[in-house]
Every structure is written in C-alpha cells, then in structure tokens.
Design a binder for these strands. Structure first.
Lengths: 110, 110
DNA sequence: GCTATTACCTAGACGAACCAAGTATGGAGC
DNA sequence: GCTCCATACTTGGTTCGTCTAGGTAATAGC
C-alpha cells in the first residue's frame, strides 16, 4: 500500500468509524482494516497523533475505561465532528471524481 | 480543494497526461485543470519538482524546443513510465475502493 | 520466564506539496 | 517607452501528515 495516498483520508476514515459509536484506538485500527478489505493497516504513529489532533479540534471527546485489566481510551464523535465528517466525505467524493476524470475513468455512483 | 488529498496522485495524473503524447509543464497544468473539471490547479512548486523527480527515475525523458520565442521543455513518457502509470492506476483504484469500503459507499465501475 | 496480544504514547525522520521569489519572452493597452 | 498580463521554467525553504522505532504496561498461553 502506497502510504502517500492515505494523506488526508486517515482522519476521515477515523471519523467515519466513530460516527457509528464510540471506539478506542486499537479497535479503530481493526475496524478500518476489515472495512477496507484488509488494505489499510493504520500505524500507531499515525493513529494516536491523529486522535489527539481531532480531539484538540473538538471533533472528538474522550473518556477512559477499564476492561479486563487493560485501560482503554474511548473516543466519541461530537456534533462538530459529525459536520466535519460530512464535509470531508463530500470533499473526498469530488476529489475522487476529479482524479477519475483525469484518468479518463467514469464512475457511476450507486 | 484540500491539498493533502493530492498526495501521491499528482505524479499519476502527470504520467497519465503524458501517456497521450509529449507535453510541457505549463500545458500539463492546463490539461489536468480542464480534465479534473477545474478542480486541480497544479502549482509550479509541485509540478516542476515532480517532473524532475520522474525524469530522475527514468519514467520520463525530456527535450527543449522553441516556440514563438519561448523555450519549452517537453517531457515524454518512457516504456518504464508507461508501466509505472499502469501500476499506479491499479493502486489508485484499489485505494479508492478501500476508502469507499470504509465509508460504506459502493461504486459500480463502468 | 518468554512471547504474543492488547493497549496507549511520543520524538524524530521523511517526503510530497506549497509559497515565494527569481529569470525571461511576447503581446496588449496607454 | 512603459506597465501589465500570460507564457514558461527553476529552486530554496516551509509546512504538515505519516511512519519508524522506541517506550510503558497488563493478560494469556507455552
């Protein structure tokens, strides 16, 4: 997987996962991995800084829990986060359309 | 346009444009701009370094010409460049599919 | 005791895209 | 003659997201 392509989509995918309910770092990695068909294996060095970034921007809030002796930091999408996600999905779609336009590909959005 | 998303696709789009015949920097900008529906306006600070990068990798070759008093540096796709383009197109498509998978979108490729 | 898995954090490296400035020609308007 | 705009290429330095690689720590299986 060419890591360069991921630029800018990681946060969107993380927000998307969290839009379906609170989750924590390790689980987000698994969810993205399975939903991308095994393609995107988020690295911790990208994931955690991104979570902190998004929290600083008030798109997420967090709380600690304990599960079988292991601590977990759950993240929850805020209202602002939900808006941001919608905007980024829109951006992504027009971006992908633009690239496909240049490539001479046409996608029919289902 | 969120510039971050462009990461990794600029070179592919440049190769794609050049796959349809030799061209030069300024013209590549115009072509990408029109083919992306006015979305992607390549900046000189991205374009020329990318052209040099691709030439160093032997994916392009170049030659100078003169046109109405202005010099132009034409770039031509090499055989290796053509292969690289095919690989990057493939990469892009599976990448886009992965992202759409995470987003819960399904695209029917025409 | 060792290793794998779960779970989090961070400093520093890396690299692609950008801004900004420089060089240079031709044509249009004043 | 002068300015401004479009054409056309180059490059130094900045920015910023991702990764590598290291650290901490608990549980389970061998």
């Amino acid at each position: 997987m060419d890591t360069k392509l991921l630029n800018g989509t990681l946060e969107m995918m993380m927000l998307e996962v969290l839009s379906q309910g609170p989750s924590y770092g390790y689980e987000i990695v698994q969810t993205v991995l399975s939903r991308s068909g095994g393609q995107f294996e988020l690295k911790e060095g990208s994931l955690y800084p991104a979570l902190h970034r998004l929290e600083r921007q008030k798109l997420l809030s967090s709380y600690w829990t304990e599960h079988e002796g292991r601590r977990r930091k759950y993240y929850k999408l805020s209202a602002a986060g939900r808006k941001a996600l919608a905007a980024r999905r829109q951006e992504w779609q027009s971006f992908a359309q633009g690239v496909n336009g240049v490539l001479g590909l046409d996608y029919g959005i289902v």
